[in-house]
Computed example of a mutant assay.
Amino acid sequence: MLLLAMIQIMVQPGQALTCGQVDASLAPCVPYLTQGGNPAPTCCDGVKNIKDMAANTADRRAACNCVKNAANRYSNLKDDAAQALPTKCGVQMSIPISRTTNCDIIN
């Protein structure tokens, strides 16, 4: 029974992407986003993870809003570093890292 419960918790179809997941994925990026330079490999792994988790429009919009909220928590976030993050990590994704993105237009 315990095993079945654990499997159901891990595999819940339709489960929406959460800001906790996005925040955890981007946490290693904070030094790069606030100081510049180059993102750490763990940061790029997090960016790839967000892209993989955001498999549909609803998840991409949710991730966008989470990213936007996270960006607004850091007054010293460098906008140019944030915008360049996916490119620096070699990830093509439609979720911009910005304080001002209109997430409702994300497809």
Results as ranks from 00 to 15, higher is better:
residue 8 Q to Y: 14
residue 52 D to Q: 14
residue 53 M to Q: 10
residue 16 A to L: 14
residue 48 K to H: 10
residue 54 A to V: 09
residue 17 L to M: 13
residue 50 I to L: 03
residue 37 G to D: 06
residue 105 I to C: 07
residue 33 L to Q: 01
residue 6 M to W: 11
residue 76 N to C: 04
residue 18 T to L: 05
residue 61 R to H: 01
residue 53 M to F: 06
residue 8 Q to K: 15
residue 95 I to W: 02
residue 59 D to E: 12
residue 77 L to H: 07
residue 34 T to A: 06
residue 30 V to K: 15
residue 89 C to G: 02
residue 33 L to H: 03
residue 77 L to D: 01
residue 34 T to C: 05
residue 68 K to M: 09
residue 51 K to Y: 05
residue 85 L to H: 04
residue 73 R to Q: 13
residue 30 V to G: 01
residue 20 G to M: 04
residue 37 G to Y: 12
residue 42 T to I: 09
residue 100 T to K: 10
residue 86 P to R: 02
residue 73 R to H: 08
residue 101 T to G: 02
residue 18 T to R: 07
residue 64 C to R: 00
residue 21 Q to G: 11
residue 14 G to K: 14
residue 69 N to A: 13
residue 40 A to M: 11
residue 99 R to T: 08
residue 86 P to K: 00
residue 36 G to I: 08
residue 79 D to Q: 13
residue 16 A to V: 11
residue 58 A to W: 01
residue 103 C to R: 13
residue 76 N to P: 01
residue 26 L to E: 03
residue 4 L to V: 06
residue 41 P to N: 10
residue 98 S to I: 01
residue 22 V to S: 06
residue 19 C to I: 03
residue 57 T to H: 07
residue 95 I to K: 02
residue 8 Q to R: 15
residue 49 N to D: 09
residue 49 N to W: 07
residue 31 P to I: 04
residue 61 R to A: 04
residue 5 A to I: 12
residue 91 V to L: 09
residue 90 G to A: 10
residue 23 D to Q: 14
residue 65 N to M: 12
residue 94 S to C: 04
residue 73 R to S: 09
residue 68 K to L: 02
residue 24 A to T: 14
residue 7 I to N: 10
residue 82 A to K: 00
residue 3 L to Y: 11
residue 101 T to F: 00
residue 38 N to F: 12
residue 1 M to V: 10
residue 15 Q to P: 00
residue 76 N to A: 10
residue 86 P to H: 02
residue 86 P to Q: 06
residue 72 N to E: 08
residue 49 N to P: 03
residue 28 P to E: 05
residue 7 I to K: 15
residue 88 K to S: 01
residue 76 N to R: 15
residue 18 T to N: 05
residue 4 L to C: 08
residue 5 A to V: 11
residue 48 K to M: 10
residue 56 N to L: 06
residue 73 R to A: 07
residue 15 Q to Y: 06
residue 48 K to N: 13
residue 20 G to R: 05
residue 45 D to K: 15
residue 32 Y to H: 15
residue 89 C to L: 08
residue 8 Q to P: 07
residue 2 L to M: 07
residue 47 V to C: 07
residue 40 A to R: 12
